[in-house]
Each structure stands twice: as C-alpha cells, then as structure tokens.
C-alpha cells in the first residue's frame, strides 16, 4: 500500500459511486435501494486505508462501500438489479451484497447486525496472524443498539483488529441523531472501553483516510480496535421509497458540503487535475457505469428454481 493514496484515485472512486447511483436511479426495475450519495468520502477514505488482506463489512447502505472496495461496478449493478451474474447470484441484493474474495465480506441489512459479525471476522484474522484488519461501517442509528456496546467490550478485551466506522449521516430514517443517541459525540461511546477514538469530517476524504489509516496501523500492530466517527450528509432520503423529512434549504446546505465538489476544486486549484484531466476522468467513470448498465441489462434473472438452492 502506498504511504498516501493518489488523490485522483480517491476522486475517481467517489465519482464512480455518485454516477453509478445516478444511473441506478434511472433503472425502472431498480427496486428498493439505500444510496450512498453524499457519503462517498466515508467508504472511499476507509478503503484507502485497507489492503488486500483486509475485509470490509457494511450496513445495508452498501453501494458506496462495495464500489470503494473495488468490486467491479458491472457485478455490483447486476447484483442490485437481481441478476444471476452478481457476486451473490442476485440473491443478496443491496442489503446483503458480499464478495469476500474482493475484501468486501458483506453487507448485513439489520442495523447494528454487522458489528458482531465483523468482530468475528476480525477474530479469525487475529488468529490467522497475517496482520489483516477488518473495518465495519455502520450508521448512527446503530449507536443506540446493544450490539455496538457488547461488541466494543469484547473487541477491547480481546484487542481485536477491528475499526468501528460510524458513518454518522445525522438521521435514522426520520429520527435526528440527537434524539436517537444520548451521547453528543458518537465516538465518545468508545471511551469506557478504553478504545482510541476520533471524530472527523466525513465529507473530507483525506480526513477519513488519515484517521482510518492510523487505526489500521494500530490494529495491524496488535494493539486493538479503534472507533472512527465520520460526520457525513446523505443527499437523498433514507431509501428510494422513504419520504424526505428535510426542507429544501436543509438539503441544499447538505449538498454544499459535497465531498466530490470539494476535492475536485482542491485538485484543480493546486494543479493536480486540470479541466481536461477532470473531463477525462469523468468520461472513464461514465464508461464504467455504462458498461455496468449494459452488462446488467443483458444478464439473466434467476430461474424460479433458484429460490430453493443454496438453502442448507
């Protein structure tokens, strides 16, 4: 792993998530989806701190994490659209997308449900002794769940190589975090367990990367877990079929903090990526997305018989 990731790669990765989701939204048979738009920097920053040995787990908001981890976009799209060419033969969908061979151990669409599973994956990694770490992205809603507190406790006791990544987008569907969790700063929940913690701007991909990298280094050394709270914004409602509860003004303010906008402007300003470079990047990403749409459009749906396969 390079000491510092190439900022253009990070921008590309975030752009891919954004454009992928825009294209997905246009698919008439896209079904029920939870989008990562606005929260790209969390997944991309965390994944920049992971290497091939590592595993990532996510909540049901899995599209950003799966793409950031490097699963081929056309395979992700096929899975989301219920095609057998997806990594899970269309059975998992967004809520349960998994591709352990790509370092994405999987999504688990039960709030807080991925935490203890991730701790188990990190226990396996610890016993294997190859220095692998596990990152688990969960929402602010999970911070009220017993699963988090039980898992923090065991992870601390056993010094598990596990990074707790709280993607705090401010809402559990309609409930603002201030009414869902008593702690003012969610990373403070790690304090009683003696777990090192950071709260960072989840719209700044480098801030996320640097904190995640620090915790990954600690975990790799055998010094146990870390808790990283990333304060982010979701640009749409909870899901594609959930009512928006915020005003237009609130949404506009959230979009002002767009991680792609900010990194793009910075790279342009410091001369890393000029207008021509940027448009080439966008074109690359659009081609990937077009291919994903084409591939998944042509891919077959499962046969009804598949409903009864891989059960036991």
């Amino acid at each position: 792993m390079p000491d510092r990731p190439d900022p253009v790669d990070l921008l590309r990765s975030m752009l891919l998530i954004r454009k992928f989701e825009e294209a997905l939204a246009f698919q008439p048979d896209r079904g029920f989806q939870l989008l990562s738009s606005g929260e790209e920097a969390v997944a991309v920053g965390v994944c920049a701190a992971l290497d091939d040995r590592d595993q990532l787990l996510s909540s049901g908001r899995s599209i950003g994490p799966a793409l950031a981890r490097g699963i081929e976009p056309h395979l992700v799209m096929a899975e989301l659209l219920g095609k057998i060419s997806g990594p899970n033969r269309g059975k998992g969908g967004r809520g349960h997308l998994a591709s352990p061979d790509d370092g994405f151990f999987g999504a688990h669409a039960v709030v807080g449900g991925n935490l203890s599973i991730a701790a188990g994956v990190s226990l396996a990694a610890q016993l294997e002794g190859r220095g692998a770490v596990v990152a688990c992205i969960f929402g602010d809603g999970a911070c009220g769940a017993g699963a988090l507190h039980e898992t923090l406790n065991i992870a601390a006791l056993w010094k598990l190589p596990l990074i707790f990544v709280c993607d705090n987008n401010g809402f559990s569907i309609s409930t603002p975090v201030a009414r869902g969790v008593a702690a003012e700063r969610l990373s403070d929940l790690a304090i009683p367990f003696g777990i090192p913690r950071r709260t960072v701007d989840g719209m700044d991909v480098f801030a996320v990367y640097e904190a995640a990298r620090e915790f990954a280094d600690v975990a790799r050394r055998g010094d146990g877990p870390g808790f990283l709270e990333c304060r982010s914004e979701r640009f749409a409602s909870h899901s594609t079929s959930t009512r928006e509860t915020r005003s237009n003004e609130e949404l506009a303010a959230a979009r002002e903090r767009c991680p792609i906008l900010h990194l793009g402007a910075r790279l342009e300003a410091d001369g890393t990526l000029d207008a021509a470079g940027r448009s080439a990047l966008e074109k690359d990403v659009e081609e990937l997305v077009s291919r994903a749409i084409r591939f998944s459009g042509e891919a077959p749906r499962p046969s009804p018989d598949d409903a009864l396969s891989d059960v036991v």
């Binding site: 991730a118 701790a119 994956v121 226990l123 396996a124 039980e150 065991i154």
Partner: peptide
C-alpha cells in the same frame, strides 16, 4: 466470553464465516 450472548453468537458466526 462476557455475559453478552448476542455479540458472542455473532462473533462465533462471523469467525466461522471467515474461515474458522
């Protein structure tokens, strides 16, 4: 393990899923 059945079961299952 501590008195934490939910996490203990999850950890055991996650560890098994990951190769143990």
């Amino acid at each position: 393990t501590p008195v934490a059945e939910a996490a203990t079961i999850g950890i055991a299952l996650g560890a098994a899923a990951a190769g143990l």
